[in-house]
Design a protein around this nucleic acid. Structure first.
Length: 446
DNA sequence: AAAAAAG
């Protein structure tokens, strides 16, 4: 007999929200974590793969445990990025739809702090926050966490390393008697020892869906290119994926800007997101991506963790991730909730050893995707050029007189003849200059 | 070295 949410102790009142969100059966992590959260005593460390429903695994039981007669904050959820914080807030809101008396607050940065301060004067049961903004609110003494009962660290490994200072500050402001729940998809060995410092009660450890090595739904591939071909190979790949959606990860903000500009020039349906953009722009781009108005998101590791966007069929690492964990999180943006997805990493020859490391360390098998041949790349570039023409808006500066002269020149041509001529023109302009001597040796040896 | 998180 398959377990239902009701078998885990979740009240019938959540049924409507769950079916509205098309959640029917509990996932492995939900089956294991929900009863522990509901047991009212233990702390919890949960290790579960990307895209397996961690938010609902703590969200549902914590919503159910909420005491609406208590007006002070009882639950705090911390996330490493504003986008993830907002996503968790939105999901909790949807899960709580049938219990409108539960008041949930969002305390993420990048948005005016005054309204948040005003809002905190009302009864609030649960808050989702990013660390920087919460520390700011604590220093201003406008938030009271003295009655906190439940403390969730999502992306716990990242929170207690990269954001350690803020998290430690926050922990000093919440009661020792609270229960602590850590959720993560990655647990580097170095983090394991740190965890004890954050717990205050008996700790239940849960590993969900971890019996198989590697994320089942992801097809891991890599392609080896010369640095100069990188963009062409990416454009070739993207042209084979038109109509599908995905994320392209770059190492730096500057690289994101540059690549996004290039995709825009080539008329791909794309947008960029990184930490130096205003929150307004970040929100707009994420919104457009979530709603399917944009097919391709170019991003830094800002978007690597937790972000859940429907129907992403691929992830591209335009630059290698820095850590094994970053690879897991980036590739985990695809193949969510049981779906399939492709994770393509574009590298140069020297980085093949890094792929071998990823294979060994993560226990996943990469396929070596043969690089598109020069002819096919050239054809692709021609297609991009045609699409660029097709999507170009008419230039209003051109005078009617000039336009009519040009029309006269082309007057007798059929559409097919016109296409032949502009294509021949393009090809002539882009004809390769043949090398006059053999290419020089790749690299000098010292 | 870079990314995130405060403004």
């Amino acid at each position: 007999m398959l377990k239902q949410f009701s078998d885990l102790g979740i009240h019938e009142s959540f049924q409507q929200s769950l079916s509205d969100l098309s959640i029917s059966k509990p996932t492995d992590v939900q089956k294991k974590a929900i009863p522990v959260v509901l047991n009212k005593k233990d702390d919890l460390v949960v290790l579960a793969k990307t895209g397996t429903g961690k938010t609902a695994a703590f969200g549902l039981p914590l919503l159910q445990l909420t005491d609406t007669s208590e007006t002070r904050i009882q639950t705090l959820i911390l996330a490493p990025t504003r986008e993830l914080g907002q996503q968790i807030f939105t999901n909790l809101h949807a899960l709580a739809a049938a219990n409108p008396e539960i008041n949930i607050g969002s305390l993420c940065g990048g948005t005016p702090i005054k309204p948040q301060i005003e809002r905190l004067k009302e009864a609030t049961h649960m808050v989702v926050a990013t660390p920087g903004r919460l520390v700011d609110l604590l220093k201003r003494e406008v938030i009271n966490l003295n009655h906190l009962k439940y403390f969730v660290l999502d992306e716990a490994d990242e929170m207690i390393t990269a954001l350690k200072e803020e998290v430690d500050h926050i922990i000093k402001s919440i009661p020792k008697s609270r229960r602590t729940f850590l959720f993560t998809a990655t647990m580097p060995g170095t983090i394991k020892q740190l965890i004890q410092n954050y717990m205050s009660k008996h700790v239940v450890q849960i590993e969900a869906d971890m019996e198989t090595t590697g994320h089942q739904g992801i097809d891991h591939q890599y392609v080896v290119v010369e640095p100069i071909e990188k963009l062409d190979v990416l454009l070739h790949f993207l042209n084979s994926k038109v109509g599908q959606r995905g994320i392209i990860f770059c190492k730096t903000k500057a690289a994101v800007n540059k690549l996004a500009k290039n995709l825009a020039i080539n008329k791909f349906s794309s947008g960029a997101i990184h930490g130096s953009l205003s929150q307004g722009i970040r929100d707009r781009i994420m919104g457009q991506f979530r709603e399917g108005h944009i097919d391709i998101l170019v991003a830094t590791d800002l978007a690597a963790r937790g972000i859940d966007v429907k129907e992403l069929s691929y992830v591209v690492n335009y630059h290698l991730p820095d850590t094994y964990e970053a690879y897991v999180h980036r590739s985990g943006r695809t193949a969510r909730a049981g779906a399939k997805g492709l994770a393509l990493t574009i590298i140069q020859e020297e980085e093949v050893v890094d792929i071998a490391d990823f294979q060994d360390e993560l226990g996943i098998k990469f396929k070596n995707l043969p690089k598109a041949d020069a002819h096919s790349i050239e054809e692709n570039n021609t297609l991009l050029w045609a699409r660029k023409i097709f999507k170009t808006k008419p230039n209003r500066e051109v005078s009617e007189d000039l336009k009519s002269q040009i029309k006269t020149i082309f007057h007798h041509l059929t559409k097919e003849e016109l296409v032949d001529k502009i294509l021949a023109n393009y090809l002539a302009q882009n004809a390769k200059v043949l090398p006059t001597e053999a290419p020089s040796k790749k690299r000098k040896k010292h």
